[in-house]
Design a binder for these strands. Structure first.
Lengths: 356, 356
DNA sequence: CTGAAAGCGCTAACAT
DNA sequence: ATGTTAGCGCTTTCAG
């Protein structure tokens, strides 16, 4: 690494003069400045900002008088609508409160998450937001040196961190009840079993042994189950189509379960993206939505309103998730007191559109 | 700020012992350890990782023997398919090469971009990728202390940085030619004029005065223009429907230009998202796609394949954009030599699907 | 106009 | 088992 000392030696001056030249602050002879700049160019000098920050510990105010507060957001996937909308909303909510957000993709991999904390979040973030983490709260706490942390969509009971949850159980129950209220009596569920999101099985048997990637799934299934029970339908009789929660997988799952699908008059899908694939898959096998069969999703991503047919769905209040996450985190950052951890379930509404 | 010294004073030990306890490394009396931990808790001590990094300058290898290389990606929006897919692909390409990616949303705002560089990228990234930046290359260079930088989709000729471009001109030309080849003779263009992406007019009149947010638009229009010229169609006769490049805006634009739309037998949309809104808007006014009118998009986002009807589009090789961006950047990071700047235009193909 | 010294918080190496 | 020393790259202070 090239230091100011090196540049100084090359230019025949001290490191101090190099510093002065490069920041253009104090008076330096034009000739000296030129020599220094040449030397810096020649050696490809780059300001080592790490040590700059070390220095800045000393001076209370930053050079520009701004607050350099930063939130780290670890999110499972960036290429799908729900997490990317959430990331965007969090960025914007944080910005309104004077925080910069840095987003990192975990792809639901524990090793990635550790790396994120070690390399970045822990290095310079004032707080962390973890969405669908595979790490235990205690590991996050330890790796992050007890940085304030908010978890999203992590329902493991042993966690002792602030948590924002999507209304999986209540939302799913409301979905089934809605379909029932429109006269559907043969409601199937899509996205039920098997590995979900990604096939991330078989890793990480230690710290997160208690973690089930299908946690959110279970809560949504539980909501369905409750609804059917209230409606007097045997849970065992409910058709469940297994598929990962992606559009292409869901499309294939419909093709592979055509007969089962034809016995239904409505399908409730575990996510909107799944529903998109289902609607496409239904067209592939000659079924019209909603005329032949109703389809309902879960999430409330923007694109659902634009699709043809537009998607009836459990619309989670995603801006609320983002806002609460940011608020809770900043509260923790500002206030070191040990107030009790919070656990907030986001609102939802049934967005009644064309598909059901 | 609470330092190890403070904790040590509270616990009646030296800072060194505090360090040892907190990292659980060396042998410490359980009793001492307990006292230290209590003191740390009481004072709300948090490891100052800034100085950790300062320290790490000294020891060549990191504590875990890993390389802590990081790429900063500044992207205009995270809640739309194209940029979020791109961000995801860049993250994954970088990871394969041992780099962690931190993503930040600019929302096409110069002040945000400056903040991103100052707060984050400049602090600890080895290199930057800027997508649709509003800053000039020279400002980026200066703010980032000459960090290696790759620009995406920035066609300003004065820039002297590595650049990856989407094939706007060739892609648009190919789109028009494709529609023509299917017998369409009344092709309209959607997404043509007015502020695009966001209404970010009126800011930043100094450094980026030379920057036109409609730059990409102009290149795509130029491609259309070339195609029509070759086909013997007067450019002045081509219907152009102005709308920002979002689905909801595009949907409204169709409703507001119903008569003009009805005179067309095909519509070429500036982005896939625009096309989604257009298809929906066409249904709103009773036109069927592709029976009554063909629709074509530009980008090649995944969802286009799942829609009903599936979207015929200029499918940019987005993985190639991501891969080249990462490769070029890492090349710059590794090799300080001043090889000439590169300028790569990504491949594309016409994804021939149902909508046209 | 230029440079020497001190020190930011932390920890490896060494001393007690 | 615990403490002391030195130093990471840089910049503020103050002396030449």
């Amino acid at each position: 690494m090239v230091t100011m000392k090196d540049v100084g030696r090359e230019a025949g001056v001290s490191a101090m003069t190099v510093s002065n030249v490069l920041r253009g602050n104090t008076n330096v002879t034009p000739e000296t400045a030129r020599r220094v700049r040449e030397a810096a160019d020649k050696l490809h000098y780059r300001l080592n900002t790490t040590s700059l920050s070390a220095r800045s510990l000393r001076v209370s105010t930053s050079r520009h008088g701004r607050n350099f507060s930063t939130i780290g957001l670890a999110i499972f996937e960036l290429d799908r609508p729900y997490p990317s909308q959430l990331a965007s909303l969090i960025s914007q909510a944080a910005e309104k409160r004077g925080y910069q957000t840095v987003v990192q993709e975990t792809r639901i991999n524990a090793e990635n998450e550790r790396s994120i904390i070690e390399r970045v979040s822990n290095q310079f973030c004032d707080g962390l937001i973890f969405s669908s983490s595979r790490l235990s709260a205690s590991e996050i706490e330890q790796l992050s040196n007890h940085r304030p942390t908010v978890l999203l969509d992590d329902d493991r009971p042993q966690q002792d961190l602030d948590t924002i949850l999507t209304p999986s159980e209540a939302g799913a129950q409301a979905a089934i009840e809605y379909l029932w209220s429109t006269g559907k009596r043969h409601i199937g569920i899509v996205g039920g079993l098997g590995e979900n999101l990604v096939n991330a099985a078989g890793e990480d048997n230690d710290s997160s042994a208690t973690f089930d990637i299908n946690d959110t799934l279970h809560r949504r299934l539980m909501g369905c189950c409750n609804a059917f029970e209230k409606l007097g339908v045997q849970w065992e009789d409910v058709p469940i189509i297994a598929t990962p929660w992606t559009d292409t997988d869901a499309r294939k799952a419909i093709a592979g379960n055509a007969d089962l699908v034809r016995s239904c008059d409505a399908l409730f899908c575990m996510t909107d993206t799944t529903a998109f694939g289902v609607i496409r898959g239904l067209k592939d096998i000659g079924l019209r939505v909603p005329d032949d069969i109703a389809v309902m999703g879960f999430d409330g991503i923007d694109m659902g309103a634009i699709m043809t047919p537009s998607l009836t769905t459990v619309a989670v209040d995603i801006p609320m998730v983002a806002q609460k996450a940011v608020d809770l985190l900043i509260e923790r950052i500002d206030d070191e007191s040990d107030r009790e951890r919070q656990r907030i379930v986001a609102d939802f509404r049934i967005a009644q559109r064309e598909s059901a």
